[in-house]
Write a protein that binds this DNA or RNA. Structure first.
Lengths: 189, 189
DNA sequence: CGGAGCGTACCGACCAGACGGTTTGTTAGC
DNA sequence: GCTAACAAACCGTCTGGTCGGTACGCTCCG
């Protein structure tokens, strides 16, 4: 049944979505009350599903990472068998996110804020290391990977400091990074 | 006199340093008490110099930006007259900071945390826009500037998510970015 | 079929402590 | 002696977390 009054899965989903919105608005100082209210749940209900604020934030972080990982997998071109196909998918996923102008700033704010909590920060490290390993097994020159990854990260946080990026700037950087992610040899001067 | 008991300049310096340390340890939730204690000053003393938490954080952010700006200026090679000399100085300043391993993670944590406060966030935007303008007047292809800047930003926040970066990785990325910052033409595939 | 029993989902009042900021008081230096 | 630099006690508010209780929905037995 979909119309159930009690539905743990649905409630948890609502709580995560509400938490995301509330964190963007109120910053790291969000109150659990605010999150619960935003989700249309009592604070007791929230505490039933997430036993502490840290646990809620950790769950939120995991959710975001999962979404991004799925986005990358979705963007692997099946016709593309050349080395670096996963790295290129990573670039596409990054910039597709950035092009949803509204979301971009919020997403970034969200991640930056989350990194202020201990458990989310730890999980972020774990995920990043995993990406490093995964992408390294893709046949591209390590230097290229590094630059492309750093530039992706930089582009991701840029909205936080500079506001939304212009579409032409995004498109330019995107194609440039895709090009960098395509060659196999080292790139020098 | 240097041995004065009352010295506003010295006290403010101590407060900013203490705030930096305290923010790194306690995150965005630092209490003013903690900062004051760390600085060896009473809370009243703190409030005398900075009338609110936001004001303290803004001052801290300004301090960091000023330091970085000075670091860039210091690293402009006087013998280097080719286009992009300031961009290369920017790269050097970024990676010199990153190589002080201890500081790197803390510095990044600090910036990320600060960006959670309204006033510091606004000032960060202002500074970044200024850098964009300044570096654009340096004769390098805009695309190159963008990639190099993004990669610098990315490298700066990487420690936050991945822990300290290895020296060989840093050296590699650094020289690669310096190379990218040297050519004047557009770089394609 | 039905209703008793039970576990999970959820509610809402409550508390202890902490925090930002104010106020009032004290002392150093010009 | 007057002002700026501090100190210290204080206050109202808010927050994370707890707890006792309620309502829903399933299951299993008769």
């Amino acid at each position: 049944m979909t119309g159930q009054v009690r539905d743990a899965v649905r409630t948890r989903r609502a709580l995560l979505d509400a938490a995301a919105r509330a964190v963007v608005v109120h910053g790291a100082g969000v109150s659990l009350d605010a999150v619960a209210r935003e989700a249309g749940v009592s604070k007791g209900g929230l505490m039933h599903h997430y036993r502490s604020k840290d646990e809620l934030m950790a769950a939120l972080a995991d959710d975001l990472f999962d979404q991004f990982a799925r986005a990358v997998e979705d963007r692997i071109d099946p016709a593309d068998t050349a080395p670096g196909r996963r790295l290129r998918a990573y670039v596409r996923a990054t910039f597709d996110d950035l092009e949803k102008t509204q979301d971009a700033v919020e997403q970034t704010t969200l991640m930056a804020t989350l990194s202020a909590f201990p458990e989310p920060a730890r999980r972020a490290q774990e995920r990043y290391r995993r990406w490093n390993r995964t992408l390294a097994e893709d046949g591209v020159d390590p230097q290229r990977i590094l630059v492309v990854l750093r530039a992706c990260d930089g582009a991701s946080i840029a909205p936080l400091f500079e506001g939304p990026l212009g579409p032409e700037e995004l498109a330019g950087t995107r194609s440039l990074l895709l090009a960098l992610a395509t060659g196999t040899g080292p790139l020098v001067g």
